[in-house]
Amino acid sequence: MIVLENVTKVFQSKKGKIEAVKDVSLHVKKGEIHGVIGYSGAGKSTLIRCVNLLEKPSSGKVYINGEELTSFTPNQLREKRTNIGMIFQGFNLLKTATVYDNIAIPLKLIGISNEEVKNRVNKYLDIVGLSDKHNAYPGQLSGGQKQRVAIARALSQEPEILLSDEATSALDPETTDSILDLLLKINEELGITILLITHEMNVIQKICDYVYVMENGEIVEHGSAIDLFTKPNKETTKKFLNTIAQRKLTPSLVNQLKLSGSVTRLTFVGESTGQPLLSLVSKQFNVKPNILTANIIELKNGIVGNLVIHLVGDQDEVKAAQQFLKDHGVGLEELEG
Rank of each mutant, 00 (worst) to 15 (best):
G38N: 14
V312R: 07
M201V: 12
N306F: 15
Q284D: 10
D132F: 10
V269M: 11
V308Y: 02
E334M: 13
L280D: 12
D172C: 00
Q323M: 12
Y100P: 05
S25D: 12
F229I: 02
H199E: 14
Y124D: 02
N75K: 12
V99Q: 01
G337D: 03
E218V: 05
L184I: 04
P289A: 13
G31K: 07
K56Q: 12
E174F: 07
P289L: 08
D132M: 08
D316Y: 12
F240K: 15
E166G: 05
K258D: 01
L335E: 06
E67H: 01
L292N: 09
S272E: 12
V24Q: 01
K283N: 11
Q322C: 11
V263R: 00
E334L: 13
S156P: 04
A294T: 11
D132N: 10
S164P: 08
E174G: 02
E5H: 11
A320Q: 12
V287R: 00
G331F: 06
E115Y: 03
F268T: 09
K9G: 11
E235F: 07
R49S: 10
I296W: 07
G90V: 08
I110L: 14
H310D: 10
F72R: 09
E189S: 07
E55H: 08
L228K: 04
E317M: 06
N286R: 10
D165M: 15
P138V: 10
K44Q: 08
Y124V: 03
E298V: 12
I110D: 10
D172P: 00
V254Q: 02
T96Y: 15
R247H: 05
Y137F: 14
A104C: 07
T82A: 08
S272A: 15
G270S: 15
T293K: 07
